[in-house]
């Protein structure tokens, strides 16, 4: 599994993500009340790096090999802890300068990684060879735009920053997103692992 992961994962993408995320969070820690939209950007980069790592450009070939999609996905999931560490360490280091909701920020990172993983694996299971790049190219700018605009901040509290923001709603939203993504991911992997059995019928003349 390690050999496969070392060869298959686009490590330059992961490295770029692991450099960009702490850099963006360092800017956020500098002036949180003004630069907070970059927290959304960093979240988008977390999701984008995870999604991109699941791409299999040679899907038409590897899908015929003995190692099924669940095995390959688990192997590639070594990227997730790396990206989450790049997300969590700057947050913990700067927790005195940030709003006092560290558990929620950690949940956001885990939630985004799970959602990106679930969406990409589900699309991959449907036959798309490289859905991760598409997911990344949507996730990063969309997260950035949502963090800048903050539409309906009380109902859609994705990136709360002020003390009066809906922190409890945000925690609920991210928990639901993470749970739903986990179910989708489990479903996609289990269906791949246990294909539907077609019953064998006896010919009528026997």
């Amino acid at each position: 599994m390690r050999t496969y992961a070392a060869a298959a994962v686009p490590w330059h993408v992961v490295a770029t993500g692991c450099v960009l995320v702490p850099g963006l969070l360092a800017l956020v820690a500098w002036r949180p009340s003004v630069v907070w939209p970059l927290q959304g950007a960093a979240l988008g980069v977390v999701g984008g790096a995870v999604a991109w790592s699941m791409d299999e450009p040679l899907a038409a070939l590897v899908d015929t090999l003995p190692r099924a999609l669940p095995w390959r996905t688990v192997a590639r999931c070594c990227v997730v802890p790396l990206v989450l560490v790049a997300w969590a360490v700057p947050l913990v280091a700067a927790r005195d300068r940030l709003p006092a909701h560290l558990p929620l920020f950690l949940l956001q990172g885990a939630g985004v990684a799970l959602v990106a993983l679930a969406v990409t694996v589900a699309l991959r299971r449907r036959g798309a060879p490289s859905p991760g790049r598409r997911v990344a190219s949507i996730a990063v700018p969309a997260a950035l735009a949502l963090a800048l605009i903050r539409p309906a901040p009380r109902r859609l509290a994705l990136f709360p920053v002020w003390p009066t923001d809906a922190w409890a709603t945000s925690a609920a939203l991210w928990s639901i997103a993470a749970a739903a993504a986990s179910l989708v991911l489990a479903g996609a992997l289990l269906r791949e692992h246990c294909p539907r059995r077609v019953p064998i019928r006896k010919p009528p003349h026997l």
């Binding site: 770029t16 960009l20 963006l24 800017l27 003004v34 630069v35 990344a136 190219s137 950035l144 800048l148």
Partner: peptide
């Protein structure tokens, strides 16, 4: 594909600093 994504992030970071 990554160029437009990175440029958009850098653009926002620069705009926030220079606002």
């Amino acid at each position: 594909r990554s160029v437009a994504i990175v440029v958009s992030v850098v653009l926002v970071a620069a705009a926030i600093v220079m606002q």
